[in-house]
Amino acid sequence: MLTEARSIRIKGRSFLAVVLTPDLPFEDWLVRLDDLAARSAGFFLGRPVVLDVSELSLDRAALKAMVAALGERGVRVMGIEGARPSQLDASMPPGMVGGRPAADVEMPAADGQAEAQKPSKAQPAEVREAAAPVVRAAPSSLVLHEPVRSGQSIVFPEGDVTVIGSIASGAEVIAGGSIHVYGALRGRALAGSIGNSAARIFCRKLEAELLAIDGIYKTADDLPAELRGQAAQLWLENDAIMASRLT
């Protein structure tokens, strides 16, 4: 039984993964992959690898065989992008959506010359550095000129979301940064979704179903009654959501 009213933290986090895009015939592609692996042993070792199959038409068995063939080579697939639900089953890596392109991953050079100039790949610290060139893009924001209707979901991990209009009951806005609503907030607003505890939620009229900042959430019932229907802002302080009237 639950005795303590402590909330569970659910956060989004983005990692850089290597995306492999096989082409057909698959056997030829594997030969080229083996060639790459021969030049740089352990290139894929310990790296998160996502398999992009959106350009291929494969059945479930073929996809399974592909994952297995990669597994034999020490390439562990953490997720599959662009696959139909019918192509996946419980024993396979999960399907992934919503990936965004990042900087190209440097491939081992063909002649080993470049390899010599670089510190040995065996050093784990170096590998990690190469694998995580997470460049934070300039802060971006999304401005919506229309109300967010019931059933719509706006996901914008890159930054702030500003809604000129209302967020309807049954609609949700998920932002990496803060959420500004110049209207009534009746649906769900999840700010700081990729681990930003400085994110805030502002609205003209607070009637939200659910509010979350950096994974900490509050439902409508947890909100102070005197704030209902008021212009309000919400922020995070010591892992608790604070709310106050905006005057």
Partner: peptide, 12 residues
Amino acid sequence: VRDSDRIIGLLD
């Protein structure tokens, strides 16, 4: 009203 809101979203 909520269902109508959903429909308006689909119309758009």
